[in-house]
Nucleic acid binder design. Structure first.
Length: 215
DNA sequence: GCCCAGGTGTTTC
DNA sequence: GAAACACATGGG
């Protein structure tokens, strides 16, 4: 039963990707220009609407603080008011500050790029305030490593189409995606972006709305 | 005014 | 382990 449903799920996942790509085209996703900005955004967006994160990113940018050395100079107390709009700002200020210090100690993104993906993932997950989704977002979108990001959008959309229950453990879903698809960062990036695009089309009230490419 | 949003860590059974 | 809770703003 497992063998069959796994293979069927894998086919369904590939089919969904094809249909979304045909409907929406390439997304080139993560709203952020540099690896640092992407990583900071990944922390700030934890359980938070992206619109609120954007304001915080803009505040940092306008002060020329989207820079490892500049950010590392700030204490969590100094950082907190700047990222107020992202919510949970005390906790996130500590997380961003901790991450930046760690990043600098590891030679910045150039230093990280010398490590293997499993090694990096373990390192990231051992940081306080960096869980599986934040770690994988940084790995995929800031470092172009082939890991599939499982987030609320992924769970919501795939469960809406009956492919998953939605409450499976993170690692189970990550394995499902990674074992069902060609394992390239470009594809994982596009796929996740397309799921978000579909989710934001918001046929929220109905199980499947008529204009959905997957309907 | 209430509910939710691109999570994570801690506490509790 | 699973479940409940804290963390907080801004938009619908």
């Amino acid at each position: 039963m497992h063998a069959h449903s796994t293979a069927a799920n894998a086919r369904a996942l590939r089919s969904i990707y094809r249909r979304l790509f045909r409907a929406f085209g390439p997304q080139h996703w993560w709203p952020g220009d540099t690896p640092l900005e992407i990583a900071v955004g990944a922390i700030l967006t934890q359980n938070t609407a992206w619109a609120n994160v954007e304001k915080s990113i803009a505040a940092l940018r306008s002060r020329r603080l989207l820079d490892i050395e500049e950010l590392a100079r700030l204490s969590p107390t100094e950082l907190a008011p700047l990222i107020r709009s992202a919510g949970f700002y005390n906790i996130k200020a500590a997380r961003v500050a901790g991450f930046v210090k760690w990043l600098r100690a590891h030679g910045g993104f150039a230093g990280l790029r010398r490590r293997t993906t499993p090694e990096l993932r373990t390192l990231l997950l051992s940081r306080d305030g960096i869980g599986p989704e934040t770690a994988d977002s940084i790995l995929l979108y800031a470092l172009a490593r082939p890991v599939f990001v499982i987030d609320a959008y992924t769970r919501r959309i795939l469960s809406r189409y009956g492919l998953i229950a939605g409450d499976e453990p993170y690692e189970d879903l990550r394995r499902l995606f990674e074992s069902s698809l060609p394992g390239t960062a470009a594809l994982f990036n596009e796929y996740h972006a397309l799921l978000v695009r579909l989710a934001k089309m918001s046929c929220r009230s109905r199980p499947v709305c008529d204009s959905c490419p997957l309907a």
